[in-house]
């Protein structure tokens, strides 16, 4: 059965888009501070999910990208086994790893934080999205040298081989050393095609174009 990209979103530390259109967040939001911008975006989305503030930056990015895509889906929060969440990035959870390392670096003051440590696994972002949306399907995380539309396409296509999966939330979500970006697609298996065809070329065009637009804004 053919697959199509139903919606896609992008979140960085200073902007957000859905299907290529900017999602309005108060202009002054963040003032260049990525954390503040993500919090402002959360409020603009009216998600009402206080757990958001407990997440690490990687999970916040992925969570917000998924909210942008799923906010208009109906019905929401109904348990679904046929939706998978598959994420990719370059630096795994290194941003949070560095935080945990800082907490244990000094032997005379070693107080590792359990709520930081649980985020020292990159796949937690997929778990957070699954929990929020009651998605009981496959959740996976792959680490790649760099963005690769081919790799994303291959892994997502494979996920449909599961026999149960009908839709995949697929994301590139990277947060480390100055990079803060999430690009997410909702890929659906459907009889009549609506949306963009799911192909390596299309995936790459969407990622590159969205990135370009975000840099210009």
């Amino acid at each position: 059965m053919p697959q199509a990209i139903k919606r896609y979103s992008c979140v960085t530390g200073r902007s957000a888009t859905v299907d290529g259109e900017a999602f309005p967040v108060a202009a002054e939001a963040g003032d260049g501070d990525e954390g503040k911008f993500l919090a402002a975006l959360y409020r603009a989305l009216k998600a009402d999910y206080p757990k958001f503030f407990k997440m690490d930056a990687l999970s916040k990015l992925g969570f917000l990208a998924s909210e942008l895509i799923l906010r208009d889906e109906a019905p929401r929060f109904v348990p679904r086994e046929d939706i998978a969440v598959v994420c990719f990035n370059r630096s795994a959870s290194l941003a949070t790893d560095v935080q945990h390392q800082a907490a244990i670096q000094r032997e005379d003051s070693c107080y590792p934080s359990p709520s930081v440590f649980v985020y020292t696994l990159p796949n937690i972002v997929a778990g957070e999205i699954a929990i929020r949306n009651k998605l009981l399907g496959e959740t996976s995380f792959y680490v790649c040298r760099e963005w690769s539309a081919q790799q994303v396409f291959r892994m997502v296509s494979h996920t449909f081989c599961d026999g149960c999966t009908r839709a995949v939330l697929a994301a590139w979500v990277e947060c480390f050393e100055g990079t803060c970006e999430a690009f997410m697609m909702l890929v659906e298996q459907q009889d009549g095609l609506s949306g963009l065809p799911f192909s390596v070329e299309q995936v790459d065009i969407l990622y590159q174009n969205t990135k370009l637009k975000l840099w210009k804004s």
Binding site: E81, E128, A130, E138
Partner: peptide, 11 residues
């Protein structure tokens, strides 16, 4: 093989 999520809690 199959992978499934609890959709319950991160830890």
């Amino acid at each position: 093989g199959a992978i499934r999520n609890d959709a319950n809690h991160i830890s």
